[in-house]
Amino acid sequence: MHALALLAASVTVVGAVMVITRRVAVHAVLYLVVTLLSLAVILVMQGASFAAMLEVIIYAGAIMVLFVFVIMMLNLGHPDSAREKEWLRPRAWCGPGLLAAIVCAELLYCMGTFSGPARPFAPITAHDVGLSLFGRYVLMVELASFLLLAGLVSAFHIGRNRVGGN
């Protein structure tokens, strides 16, 4: 395997682990951005430059900004950090961690049987994706737009209730 690929993969995994172990939410968001960026590097190596671009612009750009805004508005302070420390004791860790490890092991065992001849590497461009998206899968696009609309309406509704509650 390529050295850069190995580096990107390890940064991804380490970043993800850091996300779930941080005590301060902003640190976790920053680690998540690192994870997403290195994931984008992996996507480029897969020949999916369009997906990588979306990952950077929408995920690491837009969605993470949402997180940052919300964390700003929540105004978390020192007592929260202390509480997080209280919640992250090994006693709370071991059960769920074991469960996740079992799932991981089983999945790895399942996919261990996968093998097949590799194809020659050829990138899939945005052109191909667009043709496919608005050709065969145009109904999926409509469904996704329904989903986004529903999300928009419900986020608006929840936000409005919040104003009314005060």
Binding site: T12, A16, I20, P96, G97, L99, A100, A101, C104
Partner: peptide, 13 residues
């Protein structure tokens, strides 16, 4: 798979 398990652990913990 590794990423998925890490995420799952995060949700549970």
């Amino acid at each position: 798979t590794t990423l998925f398990s890490v995420g799952l652990a995060g949700v549970l913990v």
